[in-house]
Write a protein that binds this DNA or RNA. Sequence first.
DNA 1: TAGATTGTTAATCGATTAACAATC
DNA 2: TAGATTGTTAATCGATTAACAATC
Lengths: 218, 218
Amino acid sequence: MKQSKISEAVVKRLPVYLNVLTELSKRDVQTVSSQELGQKLDLNPAQIRKDLAYFGEFGRKGIGYDVSYLIEKIRQILKLDKPLHVALVGAGNLGHALCNYNTYVEDNMKITAVFDAHPGKVGMKINGLTVQPMEELKETVGRLDIRVGIITVPAVEAQNVADRFIEAGIEAILNFAPVILKAPDEVRIHHADFTTQLLSLAYYLDKERDETDEGMAD
Amino acid sequence: MKQSKISEAVVKRLPVYLNVLTELSKRDVQTVSSQELGQKLDLNPAQIRKDLAYFGEFGRKGIGYDVSYLIEKIRQILKLDKPLHVALVGAGNLGHALCNYNTYVEDNMKITAVFDAHPGKVGMKINGLTVQPMEELKETVGRLDIRVGIITVPAVEAQNVADRFIEAGIEAILNFAPVILKAPDEVRIHHADFTTQLLSLAYYLDKERDETDEGMAD
DNA sequence: TAGATTGTTAATCGATTAACAATC
DNA sequence: TAGATTGTTAATCGATTAACAATC
């Protein structure tokens, strides 16, 4: 388990595998081959086998992978075999959306505290949780053993929130604000800004439409 | 302009550049070097120069890049030099969040129609837009020249929405549901499911905490 | 002129894919 | 045994980085 060598690309695919496997499990599928998985996910079967092989020998030659067993193993790898507590700052629409999502709950990841700097938001109930003021962040994070933070505040406030998270001992942050956060190397930061994703999509639009209609556009 | 050769990695970075450049522009910064950009974005300056050089010679040796000019050029590359209309299906919290975001508006990208399959949602006002029933999707997409679609519905409904989009002639889709969508090759699909992103974050948590506290945990 | 910085080629690094022996 | 499929090594492919001539 020389985890140091495992690339980000591999790690990013693990939850995707988990996703499909959970689907299969619900449909009572017992066994799956790398080829079947590859088809479903539009990935090369060799890549899937290689990804998994970084962490151990989970399959059986000639047979494939046992769905339940592989789910269990991937959960272990992702450290989702124990409940993992998450804090969220920013009780706007996006914050609400994330709190109401419960896909990750069955994966042992759960948002257990919500904060907002604006007094108008404090006290609100979101999916059973009460929005707390920022002043309570540090104490709550410690008390509930929260290790992951989500930032869903406007860009200007994001770095400040990150600093608070770091100060409180958060180990990893998922940032939805369109800002590059500064943080010490020990704190893992992932960027989930969808503005960027949306804009990049435009590149792939058919040019023809512009070129062909050049003269008659408008 | 052999666009065929440009990798997805490069295209994904362009909006990020645009972001920082817009920031700089607001602060009336005239000129920026690849080194400065690299520092801000935590990227190798050579990479930034190379990315830009795929599309033309936008800088001046010994000087750097003119901020406004580079913004203009990147907008052109991303086809954001003209207004680009976007439709969104799924008027839940996430849909609301995206509609209220206006970061991309200054980038010429705008959500101009919102749909929802559930009668309870139809007629709602979101940021000036009225939620329409799915039946009106095709007609509206045609009339408003909408070319990009965003899916913010639950996983089970996502493929159906995608099919409707494709039927209506949408060219690119940003999908927030945790499902791999099937679509013809001409339609570009980007995956923006944050469940996956959140789960992968867990991998990077410090194991020590588990190992050290092994005996005394709980 | 001297210093800075681009655009670009060459070198490096890393990730994906193909191929196949091992084995269920 | 024959067919299927893994785990893994080797080959390929692609992306990042270094280096430097060109030039502002």
